[in-house]
């Protein structure tokens, strides 16, 4: 808690107690708004798309009977543990060949296929209630319906917990926008804070405070869900 409070404190300080850093940021640094919305936009889009990809994949990994399933799981496990700097280069080359460098898609696409969501969802789905799936299969033969009405309904808490973690991670990303984007207007708030000294005034601390807000809201709002989610 202490670091957060002192960040808030520092944001009202410029030689003496003042609102100057805040006015500098909010009125004289228009690019800040753009980057803030970029951060929020990237995080939201990635959370939603990543869940749409990871939940079915984890479901497949748990229920399907096929050879090589273990190998796929191992590959994801290793991919999840790889340092970011290692995965960035293949991502960069893949994006470059598709001409997606310096576009929003270039940030979003590699992130939504990240192994983190798949592994976490897989761990949660290990204790999925199979009887319910069997029962649902008598009603419908559509995997999609089973997924939505049974799996997602059962896993709500876990999915929300995962979503919060993915959101926090995306909100926090620095290397991808720094390396994949050239256009300032596409970058996110982390880059802004990194380069805060380039802008007029002491905008660093107020920017950090605003940066904390979305994640703190999510954290406080989903506090109980998170607590349940991590205990499973």
């Amino acid at each position: 808690m202490l670091p957060i409070l002192s960040t808030v404190g520092m944001s009202f300080w410029q030689e003496k107690l003042s609102l100057k850093p805040w006015t500098d940021l909010l009125f004289d640094t228009p690019i800040f708004y753009r980057m803030f919305w970029n951060s929020v936009f990237y995080a939201f889009v990635i959370v939603i798309l990543e869940l749409c990809i990871a939940v079915p994949c984890a479901f497949g990994l748990v229920t399907a009977k096929m050879r090589g399933k273990k190998i796929i799981f191992m590959i994801y496990l290793i991919l999840m543990m790889m340092p970011l700097q290692v995965t960035l280069l293949p991502n960069y080359i893949g994006l470059r060949d598709m001409g997606l460098i310096n576009t929003r898609m270039g940030i979003i696409l590699p992130m939504i296929f990240s192994a983190f969501g798949i592994i976490i969802m897989h761990q949660y789905m290990m204790n999925l209630d199979e009887a319910q799936i069997e029962a649902a299969r008598l009603e419908t033969s559509s995997v999609l319906k089973v997924l939505i009405y049974v799996v997602v309904a059962q896993m709500k808490t876990c999915i929300i917990a995962t979503a919060v973690f993915i959101f926090a991670e995306c909100f926090n990303m620095l290397e991808q926008p720094m390396l994949f984007l050239k256009d300032e207007r596409l970058k996110n708030l982390t880059v802004f804070i990194m380069n805060a000294s380039d802008y007029e005034g002491k905008v660093l601390f107020p920017a950090s405070v605003i940066f904390l807000i979305p994640v703190l809201i999510l954290y406080l709002y989903f506090n109980e869900t998170l607590e349940k989610g991590i205990k499973l």
Partner: peptide, 27 residues
């Protein structure tokens, strides 16, 4: 049913192949 469960994994695997595994061989 089993086939369909396998198809569920497809989007994720395709993405991983395109953005991570195949480029890794280029690396």
């Amino acid at each position: 049913w089993n086939r369909k469960c396998c198809i569920c994994m497809l989007p994720a695997i395709m993405g991983t192949l395109i953005f991570s595994l195949i480029p890794f061989f280029r690396v």
